[in-house]
Design a protein around this nucleic acid. Structure first.
Lengths: 224, 224
DNA sequence: CTACCATTCTGAACGCGTTCAAAATAATTG
DNA sequence: CAATTATTTTGAACGCGTTCAGAATGGTAG
């Protein structure tokens, strides 16, 4: 299932199915919108949707992939005017939340299957590795010359840890039903501050034992 | 759907359905085992299963509830010989993992829907509050006279935080495919050590700002 | 134009979890 | 005992995501 189809007409049909699906997902939710509804709205037979997308989930995945691509320049712009680890971290995540805000409910479908790496939609699955790697690069970037001294032993693992932290925030956001997701906004402020402080503190001499234990912990979690 | 039925025969039928379901879940997994299979194995019509359990998920939930009840004396015994926060924390979680070990795959079905509190099977849902509260009591217990000085402001929140920590470990365990879940064993050792150390350190004078921020964070997460 | 092949599309069908009207059975009452 | 009510059980049916054999379409070569 390549992104580009053999004929222009097919390309257009694929997009029509994607648009119809997203419209219905936004309007009535992922579960309520049926594949039959989606196909009908796109003006094709039910089976046609499966010619373009191997599953209902795959539609959301495609949406996610496209959204991530669109987001890159926005992230670039947001990070340009941001200095300091705490600010950069907050900005990076804020851009993502803002970008996905109109489709928060659609994203929920993606994170529903939790963190099971065997599920193709999981943020930890091999299928999502490409997106994850692009994301990791941003976390490496905000750590460079951020003004905070990073302990040598922690440095190689920190991008992964921050990425994981980000997933937690996004997860919270997705299920946050407070008006305008105000709780998530507050959470992000406090969490970014905590993380930045924790990193700073972790370099102190007497924190070495705790840091070493935490490092082993990280290695266990990462080692698949 | 009360746990005790109107007639003894019904009580027995309900158990037969539960047993058939668990046998099939263990044997071929939650998804592969169908409600028709379960009913057939229990010697009833398909619809009968729904007289006893409102959904397939509910069967797993019932299993979980019963397992938790069975587990209580085991926890009691394990904690008696355990001193110190780190040891107690590790023991408490180890007992649970050991108890659920033969049904690890069944538990996976429970945690599949992640942490969305709107899903009845979620560990954060109102439906699971009773079990959660019993669990929280154990965490309060292991904090009493554990030898580690707990900062006053942190104390009321710590049981909830440790419970959350436990959920993370269990989640890791459920998706851990290493032989005998050896990675989880290692993770638990390191994580319990880290948590205990972190609590000890959090009481130091210059950690006050970080602790205060973390406390606000906890309040945001808890406040529904 | 005709024959051919890959691409695109169709709609009936499958198996699933779940629902439900109605039947069977058990308990209670007059 | 029969009559009535409550409980338990049935199996067909529904709507869902998904599959698939085959029809339609369109581009290409002889």
């Amino acid at each position: 299932m390549p992104t580009t189809r053999a004929t222009p007409k097919a390309e257009e049909t694929g997009l029509r199915i994607l648009d119809a699906a997203l419209a219905l997902f936004r309007q009535e939710g992922f579960d309520t919108a049926t594949m039959r509804d989606i196909a009908k709205k796109a003006g094709v037979a039910t089976g046609a949707a499966y010619y373009y997308y191997p599953s209902k989930d795959a539609i959301v995945m495609d949406f996610y992939r496209r959204s991530c691509a669109e987001m890159q320049p926005k992230i670039e712009a947001a990070l340009e005017s941001a200095t300091g680890l705490e600010t950069r971290l907050r900005e990076l995540i804020q851009v993502k939340l803002a970008h996905f805000a109109p489709n928060r409910g659609v994203l929920r479908a993606l994170l529903r299957n939790g963190a099971d790496p065997r599920h193709p939609l999981s943020p930890f699955s091999p299928e999502t590795k490409e997106i994850r790697d692009i994301d990791l690069a941003w976390f490496r970037r905000i750590l460079m010359d951020c003004g905070t001294r990073i302990p040598r032993d922690l440095e190689p693992h920190l991008p992964g840890v921050l990425w994981f932290f980000q997933m937690g925030v996004i997860f919270f956001w997705v299920i946050d039903e407070s008006p305008d997701q105000a709780r998530t906004a507050r959470l992000l402020d406090l969490a970014a501050k905590s993380v930045a402080t924790l990193i700073r503190v972790s370099g102190l001499p007497f924190m070495r034992p705790l840091r070493k234990t935490a490092l082993q912990l990280i290695e266990v979690v990462k080692g698949d």
